[in-house]
Amino acid sequence: MTETERMYAYFICSIPMIGGVRAGQLLSRFGDPQGVYEAGTAGWREILNDSVVEYMDRQKKSGNLEEEYHSLGEKQIGLVLQEEEGFPQKLLEIPDPPYGLFYKGKLPEQKQPSVAVIGARECSEYGRFVAEELGRYLGSQGIQVISGMARGIDGISQQAALLAGGTSYGVLGCGVDICYPSQNRKLYEELIQKGGLLSTYAPGTKALPAYFPPRNRIVSGLADALIVIEARQKSGTLITVDMALEQGKDVYVVPGRITDRLSDGCNRLLTQGAGVFLSPESFTEEFMRNWEEKQELSSPDPAQKIRGRRKSRKRIEKLEEPLRQVYKLLDCVPKSTEIILQEAWKKGEYIDIVTLHRRLMELELMGYVKQNTPGYFGTSAN
């Protein structure tokens, strides 16, 4: 992608209400980022609602796009797009992945295990102790710690990981040039030096309550597993848990006393089947065993890949075109229907959700497709 194309892609990324799915629809309709920019309000209304169109129009008229884009380099802020090398592959597997990510420091290592640690902002001394011990141990074992740089459990675990010589990444609900909360300034600076800060929001975007739930899907999306340390019955932490479960991630919970209101949310998650966190050592042993098994399954040797491609070609030839169109969008790693739709749109193949579900069901009955988790489809090994 040329710098000019990236500049127009920056415009799409600067609209907070546009995620990967909407960006994919716009690009499919107008061809490329510049086409999206030049489509104007009449074109945008074909796909987006009036409030988003009005926001885009204000954004287009209010600033100097070229100047804003080039200021990223001056502020040492990176922008990585879905189709570019370095974009976190884990995020391509979640519902509505971001079209682009802004970052300061580094991006998470693709082939290194990652764990999200989240919990109460107003944590107890017990919660602080567990977060410190966990962050320190994960950092010492080379496991990346992902969190939201918030007060309490998030920031404590991240700081401990860095002190142990590990790496950590903070996902913000504002621009990466803004330190929020302000009292975590020291951690903010250390994350830039020893890990990274990431956001789907353009530089200068202030932290607003509405921006944090979408941010949470990135926290869980970047992680291979999620650990909850203290959460009330009605806690924002539980939003992240819901997103992690939707993404098919393993969730572990630190149990608490039944009289402790800070543990109500955690204890309820345990009754719903979450994994029990007993110690950093026992968790890491189980986590790494599961992680290594997944790596082996997703990384077959070259001979297996060649045999798989040959077998896949023969199977495709037997399918009628409408089913073949969907089958070609799948691989051995399960994808959500949202991701499948997005990839179809990128290729200029419009399929509505009802038709997609019908074709997937037909493929599953024929033995071509397997649904391992509700809503996630991959090619069958048979």
Rank of each mutant, 00 (worst) to 15 (best):
K75E: 11
F212D: 00
A344N: 02
E286Q: 13
G24D: 07
L270H: 05
D224L: 04
G152E: 01
H357D: 05
K61H: 08
G348K: 10
P280W: 05
I47M: 00
K328M: 13
K294R: 15
V253G: 09
L191M: 14
E122P: 00
A164T: 01
L323P: 01
D331Q: 09
L245W: 01
A116V: 09
D57G: 01
K206V: 10
E296C: 03
D264N: 08
D301Y: 04
G142Q: 11
T271I: 06
D96W: 07
P16I: 13
E230Y: 04
M17N: 12
Q59P: 00
R136L: 12
K311R: 15
L262E: 05
V251D: 08
E125T: 09
G265S: 05
K206N: 03
S380F: 12
A344D: 02
S298G: 01
V333I: 15
R309T: 08
A207G: 01
F377Y: 15
D154I: 06
A39P: 11
G105W: 05
P374L: 12
A120W: 13
F11I: 04
M361W: 14
G367I: 05
E46K: 10
G308M: 10
Q325P: 03
E125K: 15
Q183Y: 02
Y376R: 15
G135N: 11
P108H: 11
L365K: 14
G165V: 08
G20F: 03
G119D: 04
A210N: 03
S51G: 01
C174I: 07
P88D: 12
A381D: 11
G24Q: 01
R261N: 04
S51H: 08
K234M: 10
F212Q: 00
A244R: 01
N184A: 02
G367Q: 09
C174R: 00
R22V: 00
S279N: 04
Q89T: 07
K314C: 10
G173D: 04
G375R: 11
V253N: 10
Q325M: 14
F129V: 07
I218K: 06
R268Q: 13
P16A: 12
S51T: 14
S220G: 02
